[in-house]
Design a binder for these strands. Structure first.
Lengths: 233, 233
DNA sequence: TTTTGTGAACTAGTTCACAGCT
DNA sequence: AGCTGTGAACTAGTTCACAAAA
């Protein structure tokens, strides 16, 4: 049961990741079986959505019973490719790049930061707190080949992003997590995910709206908000 | 011409941010007018999409002519609320939090990092490289009030995220950028944007697929990929 | 003529609801 | 009886295509 991955939506793929994490929670709690309904209730998801998502990849459940927690988790881990270690390269050894290089979420669960690149001679050869050496971008193609790097994380300045991105995919990197504000125009077989902090902030600013004057709020403090939640089942 | 912001989709809001940035580029190039078609071609967008997005907020163009670049930009800046300074608080003074606190994208264009919080006594009172002091989370409510903080950035460990999030919205923070893997269940008037690095990495891993063995690629190197691009107009 | 603004058509994504299996 | 897997219905988002305006 294999499906063309490119036909699977970004949102479905992201949910699979969530499912894995949530199943992990159940697993540590010793829960053996779970129905889509119970799973949805527990983690505030939609049961129909769960079933649809899973059905894309096979029939993992048993009618009348539900899903076997650890088995389903293993299946999803395999579908996400997390049962093999993915080597990650971070390109741009600035504050953000070095922070990410040492970030636990980037160094666990199937991922390993294998290299950290920069083009600044003053940085090359130095090490991050966790001991990862900064390598010259000139060595990127060879390092990608040698270390089997599959994922690139772009934390260079915006002006350098297009060039750094091209270098990555020309070296054989298959996926990029782009923290810069540049838009990349990657070839279609390279998967790019943009994590544009500025866009995220500006989007939040939009939803806050324009009402309040720059200095301070007019409401009496403290105020507690109503906890309204349209819960799904 | 005002629209209920909550009825505007996340993707539309994100595109407005992109439009502002792109219009800025045209402005510095001295371009006075632009049609939706030319704008789309230049920045690889869709002209119909641009017109639809803008039409949500008013009639900014002139038929037969197009849009006046700097005027449209000012309109969008105002719609996004970027003409006023938004105070941002970063909660969690770890590697990521301090990196973000000093990140230029977080300190420009209508945003200012007004405070950085942590609950670790060893960190409280220390300063980031750019000189921002780490404040105790106990002072968060008072600081939010005093500094008019509207946006919170969560960079605490996952276990602390739910509590930190609640503290934020109970203190009056209207929007959260959540870098943790925790899901927040915020009240409906608090806008939360999740930037879950683990989910992003795992999604990329999904699209890379499972084929290749962990060590190295089998293709001859270097290989340049086909630059196939379904360009829109 | 050119280009906007916008209903209509289309496409993608989600939820419903139930037949079919255990 | 209980729950999955799934077509059908629905909802959201995008693109088309053209009437109206300059």
């Amino acid at each position: 049961m294999t499906v063309d991955r490119r036909s699977v939506s970004e949102s479905t793929a992201a949910r699979l990741s969530l499912y894995v994490r949530s199943l992990g929670v159940l697993e540590t709690e010793g829960v053996r079986h779970v129905s889509s309904h119970a799973f949805a209730r527990r983690f505030d998801l939609s049961s129909a959505q769960i079933r649809k998502d899973l059905a894309t990849f096979g029939e993992f459940g048993v009618r009348g019973v539900g899903y076997e927690v650890s088995l389903l988790r293993r299946h999803l881990v395999s579908i996400l490719g997390l049962d093999q270690t993915r080597s990650v390269a971070i390109v741009g050894a600035g504050r953000l790049g070095t922070a990410l290089a040492d970030y636990p979420g980037f160094r666990s669960g199937g991922f390993a930061v294998a290299a950290l690149f920069d083009n600044d001679p003053a940085k090359i050869g130095t090490r991050t707190r966790s001991g990862l050496a900064v390598t010259s971008v000139a060595d990127l193609p060879a390092s990608v080949e040698r270390l089997g790097i599959e994922i690139g994380v772009l934390t260079v300045p915006a002006e350098a992003a297009v060039e750094a991105g091209r270098l990555c995919w020309e070296s054989g990197i298959a996926a990029l997590l782009n923290f810069t504000s540049a838009r990349l125009n990657a070839p279609s077989d390279v998967h790019v995910k943009n994590v544009d902090l500025k866009v995220n902030l500006e989007t939040l600013s939009f939803y806050i709206g324009g009402g309040s004057p720059p200095t301070r709020k007019e409401e009496p403090w403290p105020r507690t908000r109503n906890r309204s939640l349209p819960r799904r089942t």
